[in-house]
């Protein structure tokens, strides 16, 4: 747009932009600052954005406390496994949803949409009982399978949008040449789908990495806790809350998602819109 704008409008717009910048960015800034403050300073009731003296011990303390390192390992394992399984499972189904006509497709779409409506609180009780029945209660595997199931609607939604964006003519041409469906899938669809797959995989990783509620109920042994659960247990009701290590732990928990999101930013948007428009 190249239209003229009165100067005061420009000023107002910059002011608004600055406010957004501050509003969105400040919490992370404060968290960073707290993670470098000494416990004395955090307890002193003084409010400063910059630490009076930079204290790097919080990160070490965070890793030592409450098995945070173990929890990070659990989170990493769960997130990667969820990512791999979800992608493997959703690829064929997304293809089916996008390409095959009929009742199956309608049913799939309806399920994807309704699964958003049901509160996880309704599912969690029987889910807990189901997992207990198949001896997967209080295991990381149980959590992974549950995560896979719960991210599938969204990944399918995204992926089928990407599949739909691939012109069917390409596949038909392959069919003419006598290639089998699987060859077509592997040599034509898969390469074109790669960017979408990467975006979907990363999205799945972040959802699993950030998830709190299901892990809270489905994991009971402290040595299986994922990072969000371990962080939450930092905030003891009566025990001495150590804000410095807590902030440091929170920073560590944010970094992977933040990195992935900055890589992903554009693709994720494209994917969601593809799903919305073409679906």
């Amino acid at each position: 747009m190249t239209m003229k704008r009165p100067w005061y409008a420009t000023v107002l717009m910059y002011a608004a932009l600055a406010m957004f910048l501050f509003f969105l960015g400040f919490p992370l800034l404060w968290l960073l600052s707290a993670s470098f403050k000494s416990s004395g300073e955090l307890n002193s009731l003084a409010v400063n954005l910059l630490p009076a003296e930079w204290d790097f011990s919080n990160f070490g303390a965070a890793l030592e406390r409450q098995n945070l390192l173990l929890a990070a390992g659990n989170s990493l394992f769960v997130s990667i496994a969820t990512m791999v399984i979800t992608v493997l499972l959703s690829m064929p189904m997304a293809y089916a949803l996008a390409r095959l006509k009929g009742r199956l497709r309608a049913a799939g779409t309806v399920w994807i949409l309704t699964s958003q409506v049901f509160p996880s609180i309704l599912i969690i009780i029987p889910l807990f009982l189901v997992l207990r029945a198949i001896s997967l209660n209080d295991t990381l595997l149980g959590l992974i399978l549950v995560y896979v199931t719960f991210t599938l609607p969204f990944t399918l939604w995204m992926l089928q949008g990407y599949v739909a964006a691939i012109p069917t003519e390409l596949e038909e041409a392959g069919e003419m040449d006598g290639a089998s469906r699987i060859t077509i899938l592997r040599t034509i669809v898969l390469p074109l789908l790669a960017p979408g797959l990467v975006a979907t995989a990363m999205f799945t990783f972040v959802s699993a990495w950030n998830e709190f509620f299901l892990a809270l109920v489905l994991l009971q042994s402290p040595e299986l806790y994922t990072l969000p659960i371990a962080l939450r247990s930092f905030l003891g009701a009566e025990g001495q809350t150590q804000l410095g290590p807590l902030a440091a732990g929170a920073i560590l928990a944010t970094i992977p998602s933040l990195i992935i999101f900055s890589i992903l930013q554009k693709k994720l948007t494209g994917g969601m819109l593809a799903g919305a428009v073409k679906g």
């Binding site: 919490p27 944010t254 933040l258 900055s262």
Partner: peptide, 11 residues
């Protein structure tokens, strides 16, 4: 603007 999106709810 990505920060709030990437942060785990607990954080």
């Amino acid at each position: 603007a990505l920060i709030p999106w990437a942060m785990p709810p607990v954080v």
